[in-house]
Design a protein around this nucleic acid. Sequence first.
DNA 1: AACTACTCCTGGAGGC
DNA 2: TGCCTCCAGGAGTAGT
Length: 303
Amino acid sequence: MPELPEVEAARRGIAEQLTGRAVTGLELYRPRLVQAAPGLSLDLLPGRRLLEVGRQGKYLWLVFEPLAAVVHLKLTGQLVARGDAIPGFAAGHPVPPYDAPLPHKSTALRLDFEPDIQLYLTDVRHFARVWLLPADDLMRYVEQLILGPDLLSPDFTFEAFRQRLERRRSGRLKPTLLDQSVVAGIGNIYADESLWQARLHPEQVVGTLSENDLVRLYEGIKETMRLAVPMGGARILHGKAVPPVGEFPFVHGREGQPCPRCGTTIVKLQVNGRGTYLCPRCQPAPVSWPRGTVATGRLAARE
DNA sequence: AACTACTCCTGGAGGC
DNA sequence: TGCCTCCAGGAGTAGT
């Protein structure tokens, strides 16, 4: 499921291999993929040059004067570029296989670039979306998404992270990390990985974190990104880690396997309805704040 | 404020 | 082999 590292892999591929090239044609296989501002459509693209590609969190955008396309791959989106003139790249959900013949039944869009380059957007579950808007409105559009600092940007400082968490003192850790208005880019896999790095339990209440916990969490997120971004993300298939990926991801999708740090069996639980993997020894449940205590205390105090 | 439930979707896995 | 049900989840929204 594409999170920041997968979307960043797509951004880099597009930036390096497609920027400056003109669109020569396209085919929209699944019209519901695209939501266009009034008066805009993909048909305006042929003849336009790709000027710029950007990303914040899991949102990716391509700027073609006078319009911009904002892309979100959601759970199972995938971008694949092919052509004799470029090395090609693939990023996003690894199903169907990146090297499958294209187009196939999950292909939603093909964009052609000069000279004879194809960029395919594929999505088996049809959740991915492309928004078309005037290029002049792009930054306003991104602002109204209300995203927190991007994990790879200089804005993601320890102080900024601490301040964002400060506003969510009563929330639990994992749902807070998944909230894109807190920080932009973490999804279910890297939330688990970051918490494992930081040795923190996903259900710990944010307001109970010590300064040391906060530092470990910040560093755990950075370390997780440091590992995941160069490989273009974790390869997860149906909730299971796909070999060969070395040891990464360390806990997500590895229920029943030994923790790479201490050998304790990794367990799976549900947090806010999300499958959550952790090492019960490295990430002990916060006994001083058992689940429910905080809410009960707050309710009691209100009366 | 923060949680739950629901929606959008499909294909793979597991049960029988 | 084949049918059936369940499950995975990013983000938006509505309800509690």
